[in-house]
Amino acid sequence: MAMGDATLRSRLSQSAPWRRWSGLLFVAPYLLLFAAMLILPLIIGLRLSTTRSDLFGVKAEVGLENYARLFSDPVFLKAVGNTFYFVALTVPALTIIGLALALVLNNASRWSAVLRAVFFASTVLSVTVVTLIWRLVLIPDGGLAAVIARLFGQAPIAFLSDPVLAMPAIALTTIWWGIGLPMVLFLAALQQVPRDLYEAAALDNASRPRILFSITLPAIRRTIALVVIIEIILQFQLFGQAQLMTGGGPNNSTRPVVLFIYEAGWKQWQLGYAAAAAQVLFAMIAIAAMAQYYVSSRKEPA
């Protein structure tokens, strides 16, 4: 570094145009990556979505045919429905349970620290380990749930083979996996709530629910909105859990949009079709996040 400093300094002081542009040097590496790995792929994807292609090349220009086909494809529509269902199962649960845990564990005792560690630990496992663990809990032949059911003389439930139970089972797995993140976010927010608010409430002899609803929740409302948006974006991208636990079945009841994209592109060699589905997913996430943002920002007192 020392070597370059002198020249850089002299150049900086000498030439005004260089100085004007030098700032760009700092952002250039990132902008290059941004353009090459985000904008360019986005454009390629958009372009592919108007073609009939496979992974080996473009076959024909088809305009918006892929999109039209998507919206009349029952498998895709079911996948969209499945994705929303999954989001509805997980996002409120993650938010509410995360908040509840944070409220209970927001103190300095050692036990709270241990419990916080327990709830966060699963978050650091990778999706393949998480699904392996949960398949071994849920499968009716020798899974933990089945072993326990047998202890009580009950017939084991085949969670992953039942079209009604499969998605909730995947949601449960996901909540188990991801509960640490919202909890930690809420804990951080709770630390920021001014203590004197609570002290005033204590003087008023306010009840617990009252404190919760009129002090705590309003004070962390921005974090609640943030958690909901983060989780919506995360859970819309469901892929690994469904691919590894059920493969999208039974009867298409757990196939999310991302798995649909993967199958269309890599299994069925319909890359243009997959690209179109990816754009639809993009729009879905953007709309859901914006709607949530709109709703939560409107609630803010003017």
Binding site: S161, P163, G249, P250, N251, N252, S253
Partner: peptide, 12 residues
């Protein structure tokens, strides 16, 4: 395979 098992298990 996917459609056949959905049908014979009675899901469809």
């Amino acid at each position: 395979g996917e459609e056949a098992s959905a049908a014979f298990t009675g899901q469809k």
